[in-house]
């Protein structure tokens, strides 16, 4: 038992890889119910009228890509399927390239035209100043954008017709792996009444529940579980979406069982060890 409790960590690493690989190959089907906060976000996007404008802020970099790309794709797919105008943004320096490619790919799959149905507004170096600036004029913050490989003035794009400031936006959905969501809440929702929804990584999602309770955030996707829920909801109404997060949840099932077994082993072993030590040394 002592040797088991002090096992070399490389063996633990090997077990982790093997269990996840088995999960990825076997893909066990796990019937989990759809969480209420995911459904809430789905309904909020569903309530935006046709040709209403939605900001999709993919504020994450490669570190959160595996967790949040699935969410971004599902939300974009939903928005395009409902014929909403989509404004893409990325305030994470390391995620701009990925965010631009993602919105282009999903738009192409949905037959949406750059400049007419959507635009990738891009990046600005100071998130606070950018959100505050968008509260007055979106075109001042993003004066030029790339449309079909050419630089165009944001103001002249058909997709931006009638969209001057954040009050003209029906909803902003932010995907983030950092506490940047507070900036959207502080400067988007609090200053202009912008309706917000957030998809967050597991590391930071617990911090969003107070804002969900107070109504400052109107919907929440909780890590890969939330992304998988949203994929299922979108697929029910708008087929053609790949179940990327759903596949990961199948692996999560086995991985979580593995971790719980490790924790149980460690606690049982620790308890037995303490009992043995107490018996050996009653004083």
């Amino acid at each position: 038992m002592e040797r088991l409790l002090n096992i070399d960590r490389q063996w633990i690493f090997l077990v982790v890889v093997v269990v996840m690989l088995v999960g990825a190959i076997a893909q066990p089907l796990i019937p989990m119910p759809i969480s209420s906060e995911s459904r809430q976000l789905y309904d909020v996007v569903g309530a935006v009228p046709e040709r209403g404008a939605v900001i999709v802020a993919m504020d994450y970099g490669p570190a959160s890509k595996d967790e949040l790309d699935a969410m971004s794709v599902a939300v974009l797919h939903h928005a395009f399927a409902r014929n909403l105008r989509v404004l893409g943004i990325c305030f994470d320096q390391q995620g701009v390239s990925n965010a631009e490619r993602l919105i282009m790919d999903v738009a192409a799959d949905s037959n949406r035209r750059d400049g007419d149905d959507f635009v990738f507004l891009g990046f600005q170096s100071d998130m606070t100043a950018a959100i505050l600036g968008m509260g007055t004029s979106i075109k001042d913050v993003f004066p030029e954008v790339m449309v079909d490989g050419e630089s165009r003035t944001t103001a002249e794009l058909p997709v931006m017709r009638g969209l001057e400031k954040l009050e003209d936006i029906a909803l902003s959905v932010q995907m983030t792996g950092s506490k940047d969501y507070e900036k959207w809440i502080n400067y988007g929702n609090a200053r202009t009444g912008l309706t917000l929804a957030t998809g967050a990584t597991g590391a930071i999602v617990t911090g969003l529940y107070p804002y969900l309770s107070s109504g400052q955030v109107s919907g929440l996707l909780r890590s890969t579980r939330g992304a998988a829920d949203y994929e299922r909801l979108v697929l029910d109404a708008h087929p053609g979406l790949e179940r990327s997060a759903g596949r990961k949840m199948s692996v999560q099932f086995l991985a979580h069982i593995m971790l719980l077994v490790f924790i149980a082993l460690a606690n049982v072993g620790g308890l037995l060890g303490r009992r043995t030590a107490a018996e050996d040394d009653p004083a």
Binding site: G202, S223, V251
Partner: peptide, 9 residues
């Protein structure tokens, strides 16, 4: 769940 997703990816 967050950390596991990174490795699963």
């Amino acid at each position: 769940i967050s950390r596991f997703t990174l490795l699963i990816g």
